[in-house]
């Protein structure tokens, strides 16, 4: 089953979403993964204030789906849901996605808490997804 990766602002707005492999019309589980990702936000809120790490490991699970989280220094949340991909790959993916996000955020024209529409960001996230999950 596919993997969904989202970036959520501190105010719980969805900033970015990607699926690996890219979502197809026939994939009926896409909305389910979206749903369980958002359902984990409450738990995430508690985890965020209990550790000083960026990477929060597996924070929640739904049947065989595991939700991993990473929170940046400015409280932006990167979440990923997968079924049984190696945790090492997930961790590396999130770390690299975080680095890309920091670079993006340094752009003076970038507005935090606005949806991320940058095509080059999207391309690089897709590349990362291929690198770790295919």
């Amino acid at each position: 089953m596919a993997i969904t990766f989202v970036i959520v602002s501190p105010q719980d707005q969805l900033l970015y979403e990607a699926t690996f492999p890219p979502v197809s019309q026939t994939d009926e589980t896409a909305h389910l993964r979206e749903f369980i990702l958002f359902a984990s936000l409450d738990i995430l809120e508690q985890v965020v204030w209990s550790t000083r790490d960026f990477y929060l490991k597996a924070i929640d699970r739904f049947n065989d789906q595991i939700i991993y989280g990473l929170v940046t220094a400015s409280s932006v949340r990167l979440l990923l849901v997968s079924d049984g991909k190696s945790e090492e790959a997930v961790k590396n993916f999130l770390q690299e996605a975080y680095e890309l996000y920091v670079k993006l955020a340094l752009n003076p024209f970038f507005e935090p808490c606005k949806p991320i529409l940058s095509t080059s960001f999207h391309e690089r996230i897709q590349k990362l997804g291929k690198k770790y999950f295919v």
Binding site: R52, F54, V71, A73, S74, Y98, V102, A105, L106, P108
Partner: peptide
Amino acid sequence: YRVGQRALELLCFREKLNRREI
């Protein structure tokens, strides 16, 4: 404010602290 936001994000990432402040 805009400077502060970015400086925090960059600094925490770059300085190899690998820690957030809570």
